[in-house]
C-alpha cells in the first residue's frame, strides 16, 4: 500500500454494506464482522483498496456484509482466488474469510500452499468445529467421538489442530483468538493486517445452533483464567486467576511442557518460558496445548519471510530492464525468420 495516499479516515459504519445479514441470531460471526469493520476503519487504507474473498460456508457469506470489493467464491478454493487477485493487483489489501471445513477439508490443499508461498494476505479462519451451513455434520476439527448427523455413533476422525497445520505449512504468521474476546480479537486482526505475508488467524467461533458451547472451556468466565494463556512476545508465559496463585509454563529436558504452580508474576524466575514469537519449536508446543495445559491465544508465531507476490513483481521488474522489453515486434519477428518475395 502506498503511504502517499491522502490520509483517509473512516468510521466502522463505512464498512457496513446495505445487505441484510443472514447469520443465525447469536452466531459468533457477528462479533468478528464488527471487529473486522472496526479495524478496517482504522488502517488508513482507502476503502476501494480492500478486497474480501471467501469460500463457502456460513463464515464465507462475510464479503456480502462488507462495503468493500468482495468475492464469494467456491468451496475451499478462496486461497487460489486471493492469490490470483493479489498477483493481478498487488496494491490491494486482500482478506480471506474461511471456516474449518472450507479450509481444512475441501480446501486443505490450497490452504497449505498459500501459507508456504506466503502470499501477502490476511486469512481469517472461523473454527466452530462443525459444518453449519449443511446443518450439522462433523468437521475436520471436531473432537473424536463427536456425535453429529453423520456420526451417530461418534466421530472416528482424528482432528486437525489448525495452528499446527499452519506451522507445518511454514506459515509466517500464526495467531489464535476467540469471537467473544473482543479486545484480543481486534488486536490480533490488527497484528494480522500489519504483517507482510499470509497472516493466519484461527478464531474460535461459537455455532449456537449446531455446536453450542464448543469452546466453553476457554470462554467460560469462571474458568478461563485457568484454561487460557495469552501469549505476548518477550513476556513470560504465565496464566491462572489474578486472585489466586499464578501458574507458568516451562519445558523439561525432553522439551515437554510442564505447568509450574505458584509463580510470582513480578519475578517468575529463569525456568519460566518467555514467549518468543520467532521460535518455531516453541510455537509448535504452544499451538498444540490442550487441557491440562492452557490454550494459547495471541500471536503464536511471526517471522519476516519473502512474499510470493513480492517475488513475482521483482522478477517482472528485472525482466523489464532489458532493451526492447515488452516489444511485440521483437517477440513475433525475432528468431529465425525468412522472407518470401
Amino acid at each position: 500500500m502506498s503511504t502517499n495516499e491522502e490520509a483517509v479516515t473512516y468510521k466502522k459504519k463505512d464498512f457496513m454494506s446495505d445487505q441484510m445479514i443472514r447469520w443465525c441470531p447469536g452466531c459468533g460471526d457477528y462479533s468478528i464482522l464488527s471487529q473486522v469493520q472496526t479495524v478496517f476503519a482504522g488502517l488508513g487504507i482507502p476503502k476501494e483498496k480492500f478486497a474480501v474473498i471467501s469460500g463457502i460456508g456460513c463464515s464465507s457469506r462475510f464479503p456480502y456484509y462488507m462495503n468493500t470489493y468482495g468475492f464469494h467464491t467456491i468451496h475451499g478454493r478462496a486461497p487460489a482466488f486471493a492469490t490470483g487477485l493479489k498477483l493481478a493487483n498487488p496494491d490491494l489489501s486482500v482478506w480471506m474469510i474461511t471456516g474449518d471445513g472450507d479450509s481444512l477439508s475441501i480446501g486443505g490443499n490450497h490452504f497449505i500452499h498459500i501459507l508456504r508461498r506466503n502470499v501477502d494476505i490476511q486469512l481469517l479462519m472461523f473454527n466452530n468445529r462443525i459444518y453449519g451451513l449443511t446443518k450439522g455434520q462433523y468437521s475436520p476439527t471436531s473432537e473424536i467421538g463427536k456425535k453429529t448427523k453423520s456420526t451417530p455413533m461418534g466421530s472416528l476422525d482424528h482432528p486437525f489442530e489448525p495452528c499446527a497445520v499452519a506451522l507445518g505449512a511454514d506459515a509466517s504468521f500464526v495467531a489464535r483468538t476467540v469471537d467473544i474476546f473482543v479486545k484480543d480479537l481486534r488486536g490480533v486482526i490488527q497484528d494480522a493486517a500489519d504483517h507482510r505475508g499470509t497472516s493466519f488467524v484461527e478464531i474460535f467461533q461459537n455455532c449456537n445452533i449446531f455446536n453450542d458451547g464448543a469452546f466453553n472451556d476457554v470462554t467460560d468466565r469462571k474458568t478461563r483464567d485457568e484454561t487460557v494463556v495469552f501469549v505476548k512476545h518477550g513476556e513470560p508465559l504465565i496464566f491462572g486467576s489474578k486472585d489466586g496463585p499464578r501458574k507458568g509454563l516451562r519445558v523439561d529436558k525432553q522439551f515437554r511442557l510442564e505447568v509450574v504452580e505458584d509463580v510470582d508474576p513480578e519475578n517468575p524466575g529463569d525456568e519460566i518460558l518467555v514467549h518468543d514469537e520467532t521460535n518455531p519449536v516453541l510455537a509448535n508446543l504452544l499451538a498444540r496445548m490442550r487441557p491440562p495445559y492452557p490454550v494459547a491465544m495471541g500471536v503464536i508465531f511471526r517471522v519476516k519471510r519473502a512474499t510470493y507476490d513480492g517475488g513475482v513483481a521483482e522478477q517482472i521488474k528485472t525482466a523489464q530492464q532489458v532493451p526492447l522489453a515488452g516489444d511485440l515486434t521483437k517477440a513475433i519477428y525475432g528468431g529465425n525468420t525468412w522472407v518470401v518475395d
Partner: peptide, 18 residues
C-alpha cells in the same frame, strides 16, 4: 498452481483484479 482447480481459480481471481 498446486492443482488444476487452483490454477483456474487464481485466474478468475486475476480476472476480477483486471
Amino acid at each position: 498452481a498446486e492443482d488444476e482447480i487452483a490454477a483456474i481459480c487464481a485466474s478468475i481471481g486475476a480476472a476480477f483484479g483486471g
